[in-house]
Write a protein that binds this DNA or RNA. Structure first.
Lengths: 209, 209
DNA sequence: TAAAATAGCGTACACTTGTACACTGAAATA
DNA sequence: TATTTCAGTGTACAAGTGTACGCTATTTTA
């Protein structure tokens, strides 16, 4: 019951996934990647593709899922670093930038498919990003005693800013990335400060009632 | 010297541009639009395309330029409304949302090509967005007495937030757009408040020296 | 008015695309 | 062990792609 067959199948499936991922680049998006190119890169006959996925779309959604997984690893890593002490914002941004440098194509996939032509893709990517946002939201509520609404709005803004910085980092050299990182940190501080300030002001108003 | 010929040529050129624009949609991006489809939509023979553009890329860059123009109209419109008084942030966001509703495909073009596979396209879109940011930056510096650096960072953050909201608005129904607009306004207030706060704090530090 | 220029057309060609279908050899099952 | 299952192969085909080339009709130029 070891399933030498199922084992081999899983192996070729990975071959396809990896082949697709490896072909993503600044010049090549998933949507202009053909089934034949992927199978060729994987060293398979074109028609073998169908033994694993019914569609390029199905493979694409699998890639997005994998990207989501990688994103969660990123969060775990950031949390670990934060626990060791230091500026939360600074550590988060730097961890994120390292992630982009290490997985540019995974990030590109998320970035592009978020505004791509497939509704299913857009939904899948947004799901991953929402998950990311929610994690941050929980953290902010707990750390800063924010109400749920303010926490979400802040987390949402922060994620948008960081993702956008990531997008810019993809085309930037190392000195530009440094400047970009600085800017992003400042922007997150603006947001954090503003959220706190308006939150406190709201509490003040409420307590007057 | 009226140039009845040049006049006609310009007319067909517009036919091509409009045909391309009209084919953009949620399901169709410029990059998966073929030369033949565009000429067909324009009611021309495929090969006539080359009398006007050497490439689909050349047509695409033209579209991005046109989109930039539309963006500037947006700014002008917002300024006019602001002069009549009211919350600057609220008016800006609402004007932007109206723009998206009126020109969804133009906005989709900018959004997609910003992270697309053509470096020239990415550069062209970023140029337009930078222009947009600079305008806002000037305004903020003047209105809030911010230093150049802080002004730019705030403007940059604001544009990112607004564009991202625009992207989300494309897939949203009218009640979602309302909620999205509210959220965006709050986020811009966070940023404005945080920028002001940290700016004043900086001035305070400097005067201590 | 005669000659040159050119916008637009139609045909043709070499490629690439997705996928239907029949086949093979090895693993799983009975 | 005999039978069934099935991952992977190779061929074939219709559809779509960009674009080279020669033609026509009309405007522009000389």
């Amino acid at each position: 019951m070891s399933g030498i067959r199922a084992q081999q199948k899983e192996k070729t499936r990975r071959l396809l996934i990896d082949a697709a991922l490896s072909q993503l680049s600044a010049e090549r998006s998933f949507s202009n990647l053909s089934l034949r190119e992927v199978t060729k890169e994987a060293g398979l006959a074109a028609t073998s593709f169908y033994r694993h996925f019914s569609d390029m779309d199905e493979l694409g959604l699998t890639l997005v899922d994998e990207a989501g997984l990688t994103l969660r690893q990123l969060m775990r890593q950031a949390r670990q670093r934060i626990e060791k002490g230091g500026s939360v914002i600074q550590i988060s941004v730097k961890t994120f930038m390292e992630f982009i440098a290490a997985n540019p194509n995974v990030f590109r996939l998320l970035l592009r498919e978020r505004s791509g032509t497939s509704k299913a893709f857009r939904a899948a990517v947004n799901r991953e990003i929402r998950f990311f946002t929610m994690e941050l939201c929980d953290y902010l509520q707990q750390a800063n005693n924010l109400d749920a609404d303010t926490g979400f709005i802040q987390a949402n803004a922060a994620v948008i800013i960081v993702f956008s910085a990531g997008a810019e980092a993809l085309d930037a050299d190392s000195s530009e990335i440094e400047e970009l990182t600085d800017r992003t940190i400042k922007q997150l501080r603006f947001i954090a400060r503003g959220a706190m300030d308006l939150h406190l002001r709201n509490i003040g108003q409420n307590s007057q009632i």
